[in-house]
Amino acid sequence: MISALQKIYVKNDQLKAYTLLSPALILIIIAMAAPMLVMIITSFNTQISMVEIDRTFTFDRYEDFFSKPIFSMLLFRSLKISFLVTVLTLLTTYPLAYYIAFYVKKNKMLWIILMTLPFWTSYLLRVFSWKVILGNKGVINSALVGSGLIDEPLGFLLYNQGAVVLTLAHAWAAFAILPLYVSLDKIDKSLLEASYDLGNSKFETFIRVTLPLSLPGIIGAILIIFIPTVGDYVTPQMVGGTDGRMLSNMIQSLFGRANNFPLGAASAVLMLSSVCIIAGIVTYITKKLTLRMS
């Protein structure tokens, strides 16, 4: 009996694949897929009292979401902040990754490790340190006031959307560098020489060869940054103030003090789907665009 099963197992590659996948698969089903399903179901329910939820199917929560302008406004702001974070991170990390990939000859790995060194400290501490830098009694303001350049500390540094974008861009930089570096490092140097040899300047070579060939890395970085930052609620809470509040903070309070689980779930579902749609569109457009450029 056992040997018969063994025979089946040995011959069946698919079965082997699932066996190898099973630890991760079980974890994802229990910790990710199941809660997600519960959340989606809840978004079609109604909160009737502090602890009771009416399980009859209804679209009312989605109607609630769109009838109150604050929700759409916060969703739009979340997407806008994430978009700016993504752009800022790409603009700052691409040159770094480019430099390591093309100009660093020895100890590339050391450079990468150094680049990610700040990210060995906790996420919370890093966000908090920006408060220390940007605050009224922070590094920048103390220096400016101390040197007599200004009389009053600059208030616009902290507690706004700009501070959220800056903090998030810094917090996620390390995650962007790795995919960018990997895709740039893979580019065969003779391709760049070939382009150069065929009459293109260094800049044209970058636009026509390097950029399109690093596209997988760029898309990877975009997705890695954009998707999680839309839902980030720690950073806006700490450095965002009222101006920097994002939809995630609203969802948090709906599941907390506001105690409206179904509306919170509906908001989360809508946020999730808009992120998915946008990520898909961005990937598609970037691909089309870079192909045309070359």
Binding site: D188, S190, L191, A194, D197, S294
Partner: peptide
């Protein structure tokens, strides 16, 4: 001048 490279260096994305 133009060059034919040892590994041909054909652009893979086009």
């Amino acid at each position: 001048s133009n060059m034919v490279f040892q590994n041909y260096a054909i652009f893979p994305h086009i």
